[in-house]
Nucleic acid binder design. Sequence first.
DNA 1: CCGGGCATAAGGTGTTATCTTTTATTCAGC
DNA 2: GCTGAATAAAAGATAACACCTTATGCCCGG
Lengths: 241, 241
Amino acid sequence: MQIPSGATVLQEPIVETLGREIVDGVLAPGDRLTLDALQSRFGVSRTVMRDCMRVLESLRLVYAKRRIGLVVQESRFWNAYDRRVIRWRLSGPGRERQFTELTELRVAVEPLAAAGAARRAPSQAREEIVSLAAQLRRLGEEGDLEGFLAVDIAFHALLLRASGNSMFAELDGVVAEVLSGRTHQGMMPFHPREKALAEHEAVAAAVAAADGPGAERHMQVLVDEVRAALEDRLHDGQLPD
Amino acid sequence: MQIPSGATVLQEPIVETLGREIVDGVLAPGDRLTLDALQSRFGVSRTVMRDCMRVLESLRLVYAKRRIGLVVQESRFWNAYDRRVIRWRLSGPGRERQFTELTELRVAVEPLAAAGAARRAPSQAREEIVSLAAQLRRLGEEGDLEGFLAVDIAFHALLLRASGNSMFAELDGVVAEVLSGRTHQGMMPFHPREKALAEHEAVAAAVAAADGPGAERHMQVLVDEVRAALEDRLHDGQLPD
DNA sequence: CCGGGCATAAGGTGTTATCTTTTATTCAGC
DNA sequence: GCTGAATAAAAGATAACACCTTATGCCCGG
């Protein structure tokens, strides 16, 4: 309309903007939006606006009612596992909370994923996991934090994907976020320790040996450390609701 | 178009149909669809068809490319945690597989969710959990399977929602599906046993007493039984990929 | 005979206008 | 004051078009 355009970038930065506003609470649950208002706000046509709202609806951030408009949903209805929602929650005021929740999820899932990988991974993945554990030791001993992080993410992500459970596999991005947040935002001070290195190797060895219980046990040791840190940070206050 | 029709129900049975076809493999990854073909297939306008595809795109079942059309995605890209995708997978040829995966997820998550509820649940929820456990005993001893199932679902769902972790809370529907599948489809023969009843009560008592480790331990016992059954059913074959 | 560049057209993306349908609100009547 | 019908706001749906990207295939030169 105003923009005669030129470059045909997709008009889904709108989804990004609105999604973030809802997740950040700029738009509160119960707030009403209308297509007319939105299309003039963003300077796009009705069709584009509809497309955007359809996506937000699919994420359950809003729902549409005739004669009312688009109503912002309460957070408990949101598709908490959608990548975009996770990303938005991680970059707003709720960052700490989301980070804690994702970490807790990771703690719950990784041991079973390791067991699954040990039982079901294809042999190529087993080899790769062993190789990643070896690289982890090298980088850890060299003190290369960035390199360590990258390989650590690859290690955990591969384990999830090789677990043979698509629900676990889908969490690879979550683990990447949590590990990288831990290193970068210093939300959890991170020092690769001898014990952690040894446990990574033990997990890899167990996976290579198709030793499900062993892989699970060693992964449990790894996440238990994370968990201890988590419970320190937590206030453990009762929830208001 | 053809259907002037009275009721203007939303034209999203189309999403349902296409989603199911993709999940069931009727439409294989890499298959190309065009808006034109689809709009004449379903007898709707281009706009409606676009809305539908936008939703499927948001579920990552397809992606759109110019000059190509809409391409069906490989299953590893699907939003595995979206309710619709879960539902579709549970009602098609992949049912067994999905059921197993959801059960494994549940086994991973519920112990930590119980611990979370013990530490963070509001007092009203604690009382309700104790009450549900008592009802469970009564119904179990009476042999009322349907009633037992309903309360069992309520028990586990409440625990997840009261865990204080929205990622766990979102899985309430998953647990409902798994429990109800176990009872109905006989995918896992189900007999409420004394031990299970006692463990449910123990979990409830621990939650009421804000005993995180206790709630976790008892829930672990409950899911370990499920897990044993799971591993019997599993072929444990290596994955092809 | 083969490879690179250019033309073509297919098909998604975006715009505008118009009609239909639902339904919250309002206002009148009992 | 409550019920019910009229009103209108806003989403749902359709249609026709302009635009831009890009897969594909043709053509020409080496």
